[in-house]
Each structure stands twice: as structure tokens, then as C-alpha cells.
């Protein structure tokens, strides 16, 4: 199971605004797919998964401010569950 999280992209970055879920719960994804769009102080950032599988539960709603390092969803390999 891969945890998809808000990356720390600068010394001053403490949280990010969850702008859009690109992949829905239960949707199949390939490594490198964009899962969500977030906004930091400086830029819009694509949150990408590194493995292929199925998107798990969305742990935050659009509009949430999510602290850096927090997992926003997971990518499940075949047979895995949350």
C-alpha cells in the first residue's frame, strides 16, 4: 500500500490547500498518475502516485487545509484493503 501524502516543498511550507481530487475513490491508477491538485504558498502542485493500483478512501475533502506530511489517500495493490 502506498501512502499518498502532502509533500514538504519548502522550508516555510506548513500546509497545503486541497484544491481538487483528480482520481476518485476506487478508481484504477498507474504509477505516475496525478491523484490530486494542491496549492501551496507559492504554486499549484500535482500530487502523483508512485505505484499502480486502486485509489483508497479520500481522507480530506476539497477545500481542506492539510498539514505537510499528512496522508491524503492510499494506492492499494491487488488484494489489499485499508
Amino acid at each position: 500500500m502506498e501512502e499518498v501524502f502532502i509533500p514538504a516543498l519548502g522550508m516555510a511550507m506548513e500546509e497545503a490547500y486541497l484544491e481538487k481530487w483528480i482520481k476518485q475513490e476506487g478508481e484504477a491508477v498507474n504509477a505516475g498518475d496525478v491523484i490530486a491538485l494542491i496549492e501551496t504558498d507559492k504554486a499549484q502542485v500535482e500530487v502523483v502516485c508512485e505505484t499502480s493500483g486502486t485509489v483508497g478512501k479520500h481522507r480530506f475533502q476539497v477545500g481542506a487545509s492539510v498539514p505537510v506530511g499528512n496522508t491524503i489517500t492510499v494506492v492499494l495493490a491487488p488484494g489489499e484493503s485499508e
Binding site: F5, P7, A8, L9, G10, M13, P67, V68, G69
Partner: peptide, 10 residues
């Protein structure tokens, strides 16, 4: 660890 915000900077 840096990506997770666990280091003091990148």
C-alpha cells in the same frame, strides 16, 4: 523524511 516534513528543510 524531508518530503514528509520530518527534516529541517530539504
Amino acid at each position: 523524511l524531508a518530503l514528509r516534513g520530518k527534516l529541517s528543510g530539504g
